[in-house]
């Protein structure tokens, strides 16, 4: 399979503390890879190492099947990035900010207008960035990242601090970049809901360790359902079901069914009705990905 990024045993220690611990990332070509984890889990440190800003304490990084240590420059030519808060030169205009980077990348000047158009900043091209809103600065950051026509785009918390409309806008932009330009995208976030709607693959990092890495579908399968029954006498109903050989949990005066096939649910309802219970509600409780995410990272913390 065609992998754009492969890290093996990637580790970074600051003094005694391991900020990133033996990380094995695998990012496929064309993926939108959601890199998830609570704040301080080591996402930014990992991204800094992927860009050669920090040197790993141990482990290797391969990007485009090349060793980052040996071929940093030729790799970075094909990578665009936005790390944490956007970096910009406030005293320069949006155009000049891009021009300062363009000179180094050596792409054509028309590319500046292209990227400005992609992030919809054409109208303010000649305004100083000092006066931009956070969302505009963030878009300028993405424009800068796109300037070199990258094949891999690394975005670290690109929606941090944005308002809901700004978040939606960035999300649309990222989807477009993936579908229209076929760019492989690594996007980090501490919010699953953000990744949930765009990512094709998810990696979850907690305390520097990768605790999950697979497609978003696999992750969704973790979202188990529970069937909840509310009846007039919960405890009696539970006993009644047990007598018929149907296992369930009795919690908070409601019944939790452990099996959720349609037939089983129908059976249970029939039995209860026949036994004279009043059924108030039959509900399906779906665990959100957010819950799974929290559970995964909490389990990690408990250890």
């Amino acid at each position: 399979m065609d992998h754009v990024v492969i890290t093996k045993g990637l580790t970074k220690s600051f003094r005694q503390e391991k900020a990133v611990d033996c990380l094995d990332l695998k990012i496929k070509k064309g993926d939108i890879y959601g890199f998830l984890g609570p704040n301080g889990a080591g996402k930014t440190t990992t991204i800094r190492m992927l860009l050669g800003l920090m040197k790993p304490t141990s482990g290797t990084i391969e990007i485009f099947q090349k060793d980052l240590r040996a071929e940093r420059i030729s790799i970075l030519k094909r990578v665009g990035s936005l790390v944490e808060n956007p970096s910009y030169y406030p005293h320069l205009t949006a155009y000049e900010n891009l021009e300062a980077v363009r000179k180094i990348l050596g792409v054509s000047k028309s590319r500046i207008y292209e990227v400005l158009k992609i992030v919809r900043l054409t109208d303010v091209a000649n305004k100083k960035v000092k006066g931009f809103s956070l969302g505009m600065k963030q878009r300028l950051g993405i424009a800068t990242a796109l300037l070199g026509e990258p094949e891999l785009l690394i975005l670290d918390e690109p929606t941090n601090g944005l308002d809901p409309s700004g978040i939606i806008e960035i999300r649309h932009l990222i989807k477009r970049l993936s579908t229209e330009f076929g760019i492989t995208i690594l996007i980090s976030s501490h919010l699953l809901s953000e990744i949930d709607q765009i990512a094709t693959t998810v990696g979850i990092v907690s305390k520097g360790k990768l605790i999950f890495q697979d497609s978003i579908e696999i992750m969704r399968q973790f979202a188990q359902k529970n069937i909840i029954l509310k009846v007039n006498d919960g405890e009696k109903a539970w006993r009644s079901l047990l007598a018929k050989g149907i296992k369930s949990d009795y919690q908070d005066r409601q019944l939790l069914l452990l099996e959720h096939s349609n037939e089983k649910v129908a059976d249970v309802v029939r039995i209860l009705v026949e036994d004279g219970f009043s059924i108030y509600r039959v509900e399906e409780e779906k665990r959100s990905l957010e819950d799974i995410f929290l559970q995964m990272t909490a389990e990690e913390q408990a250890i």
Partner: peptide, 18 residues
């Protein structure tokens, strides 16, 4: 201070330059 102001060092060094 030009680079320090918004920590543009990380942007500059992440470009394909030594």
């Amino acid at each position: 201070s030009i680079e320090n102001e918004t920590n543009a060092w990380k942007q500059l060094v992440a470009l394909p330059v030594s």
